[in-house]
């Protein structure tokens, strides 16, 4: 218990003193996860929306698959991306293994199904309300996707934030493809794992505190966005 108190005091000291190493790790984490979420959103939202409005054989199976992919085990994603990017893999020539780019790719694979599946639900609900009206105006099924995405933007933000929560907290995939190299690919989660195993609890705890703070901020932002939507647009 005394250990914990001492580590916590040290951790708070690290955060408040603006420790360069600590903040470099935090910034890299944010850079990797925000990039991954941005890319995943650009792919996942239109994909989910298209799946919500299009009607084709096998659609239901694809929805089940997408929902299942939301629970992809990060280590398995890490392993697959590792094999793709390793020298012997099909993307080996890109020499991306053990770089932040590799970590972004792994997180995109993890997060994209979450954003696509949640977007599909949001858009499908909205489409039930809008479809007759939009068709009456003359908008085609696929042509309605931008309208549905725009009008569902506040609810879609929840999908994006859920994806961000998954990305920033994930350790299994980034440690495999990033390698946890100091000053290069060391992010919050991988550092916590490493430093805990080394007994350096202060740094691990400081990062853990920041991670929890980010999680709370993301949640607060989600409900604030929902509240704004209800207030402004009676969504």
């Amino acid at each position: 218990m005394q250990d914990f108190a001492a580590s916590l005091a040290h951790a708070i000291g690290l955060i408040l003193s603006g420790d360069a190493e600590l903040w470099a790790i935090v910034l890299l984490s944010l850079r990797v996860s925000l990039s991954a979420v941005l890319i995943a959103a650009v792919i996942g939202m239109p994909l989910g929306a298209a799946l919500a409005v299009a009607r084709f054989p096998g659609r239901q199976a694809l929805i089940v698959l997408l929902n299942a992919l939301m629970g992809l085990p990060p280590v398995v994603v890490g392993l697959v991306v590792y094999m793709m990017l390793s020298n012997a893999g099909p993307l080996g020539v890109l020499q991306l293994l053990y770089t932040p780019a590799a970590m972004i790719i792994a997180q995109v694979v993890l997060v994209m199904p979450i954003i696509a599946a949640l977007s599909r639900q949001v858009v499908e609900t909205l489409d039930r309300e809008y479809s007759e009206q939009l068709r009456s105006i003359g908008v085609s099924r696929l042509g309605s996707v931008p309208t549905l995405l725009w009008d569902g933007r506040f609810n879609l933000l929840t999908a994006v934030l859920a994806g961000f929560g998954r990305a920033i907290a994930e350790v299994g995939a980034v440690i495999i493809v990033g390698g946890n190299i100091n000053h290069v690919t060391r992010v919050m989660t991988t550092t916590i794992a490493l430093e805990t195993s080394k007994g350096n609890l202060a740094l691990a705890l400081a990062l853990g505190t920041i991670l929890i703070f980010i999680a709370i901020t993301v949640n607060a932002a989600t409900s604030a966005a929902g509240g704004t939507a209800r207030r402004l647009f009676h969504a």
Binding site: E132, S136, G138, V139, A235
Partner: peptide, 26 residues
């Protein structure tokens, strides 16, 4: 060249003018 109004109006989650701009743009 046709339009329809439903029993319960389906209004886009936009401003009043936003709803009109949408159709004019289309």
């Amino acid at each position: 060249r046709q339009a329809m109004v439903f029993q319960r109006p389906v209004l886009l989650r936009r401003s009043v003018t936003g709803n009109l701009h949408y159709v004019l743009r289309f």
